[in-house]
Amino acid sequence: MCISCGCGSEEAGIGREADDHARMHAAGAIHRHDHAAAQDLPHDHGHEHQHESVPEHAHAPGLAPARMLRIEQDILAKNDSYAAQNRRILAERGILALNLVSSPGAGKTALLVKTIEALGDRCRIGVIEGDQQTSHDADRIRATGARAVQINTGRGCHLDAHMVGHAIAQLDPPHHGMLMIENVGNLVCPAAFDLGEAHKVVVLSVTEGEDKPLKYPDMFRRASLMLLNKIDLLPYLEFDLALCIDYAHRTNPDLAVICVSALTGEGIPQWLAWLDQGAESARAACRDIAALSGCGPDEPRLLVERGLIG
């Protein structure tokens, strides 16, 4: 990870941009990201470190004076500021963004493929895929005709908001559409990192055991929706559906639950209805912002300049 800006440059690669990014870091610790190639997205975060002169110290001879310094800063403050920037860009475009989290093999990608096929022309979807290695998942998404950018985290076990900001810039997601961020398969680490999404959606497959919500409560507490996937396999398993949902509600009483099968399509209409509702909220918020500002929804820079967003 780049110590100066924390952007995981040695390990993470985002589509074609990864090589350029690595070169930029190799040039030295003081650098600036401008993302000029990233269309019109205002994803711009400078890293200009100011090295102030050393303040005066009064050293008593022979003593090393200790000094206490109050910091009071959130450990994730930097990630959260990138997340806020992502959220602002998505709000300007009226995009519903979801962060899909699960353990490996729960069926996130299969579910995404099914979702894209089922939505058809109703809504345009852009996908950001997170995996340690390979572009297999992005390839599967692209095969549906949807746009996808693969983030390889290298040794990293989660996506962070900085990586996702780069990927959003590269993906250039369409206005009034949806952005699906498929996180690294991991029920622990991705819980801590806000990516700028509207909701976390946790996918749990019925082959995993009903007590996963109790074993990994952080993820379920932070999610808005749990998709219980692979329910076509229920006849072959000893899986107590009601107990699983009860366990999930112990960690998060507000968690919505939809049972689905990416294979048979069962539950997909309910999932699409949930998505439609979220997408409409995102579009309505975008229209409200535009109406308040007196300019069209395609003029995000103007909104930022007027201080109406972000």
């Binding site: 990870m1 924390g6 303040p55 310094l69 450990i75 962070d160 680490c189």
Partner: peptide, 22 residues
């Protein structure tokens, strides 16, 4: 192992403070 990523964030905060305060 997100603790490693968090540790790097902590170090960044400490290094920023060290630079700022000399």
């Amino acid at each position: 192992m997100h603790e490693m990523a968090l540790a790097e964030e902590v170090l960044q905060i400490v290094q920023d403070a060290a630079r700022r305060e000399g």
